[in-house]
Design a binder for these strands. Sequence first.
DNA 1: GTAAGTACGTACAAAAAGGTAAGTATGGAA
DNA 2: TTCCATACTTACCTTTTTGTACGTACTTAC
Lengths: 129, 129
Amino acid sequence: MENLQHDRPRLAEALRRGELFSAECPSRDILKHITSRWGLLVLVALLDGTHRFSELRRKIGGVSEKMLAQTLQWLEDDGFVDRVSYPVVPPHVEYSLTSLGQEVARQVESLADWIELNLGRVLRARRVQ
Amino acid sequence: MENLQHDRPRLAEALRRGELFSAECPSRDILKHITSRWGLLVLVALLDGTHRFSELRRKIGGVSEKMLAQTLQWLEDDGFVDRVSYPVVPPHVEYSLTSLGQEVARQVESLADWIELNLGRVLRARRVQ
DNA sequence: GTAAGTACGTACAAAAAGGTAAGTATGGAA
DNA sequence: TTCCATACTTACCTTTTTGTACGTACTTAC
């Protein structure tokens, strides 16, 4: 030990607030994963509870297996999704939200809800179809 | 007039709730514009009030003129953004949120806020840097 | 015996998104 | 007088994203 400072998370990092408006801020990457084509939908789907890979695939209309796998990995790497794999054949894997994931998912869900609820108004407000 | 039905917005359309989980639902397009790379940032920026094109460009780090223009058109077409152009040279154009736009922008802002506030936690929860 | 389901990874190709640079008309600053 | 700022648009090119199809290893249903 060189000095008496202990290794609790440095305040600077712990308290640093992200700045989405600046191009280099790492918060941009988080945003990218959440707002990726399938990211938001996966988060909302998982708010309903644990799902198997194929359940998610059927629930989210239009996803390919490849992109679902990719999206789940991003969200897992960001600490939003928990993956549990059972060593059986045929494969059995369960996905669920971490507590961090539940927090984002709730934000994301309220956006999704707004869109679903107000679709009619938006379509009528549109200039272009 | 063929019959006595008047042309108020049909209830079916007015009350129809979007379904983001189904691939063909038009709500998917709205979502796409809002969660496009710059869409969310533009909405949040405009919550601070009216901005000129170049002000937005400077505020949102990393946008190109092309993509900012594109994004603003999507949001305008969806009825979220209002564009006012003054016939002067050099050009002067002002962008602001419609009332519909303010509603979405508020949802979007709470997501953005969450990300900025919790960046530290997310970075520490990450498996991959 | 054959087909389907499971949870992916991978190679290849297509599509979409994004960036760069240039052009426009004009006023004001240096 | 030359340069910059304004709010875009367009052409062209690169990068990223997404999709398709196939392979896997084994079980269960038909």
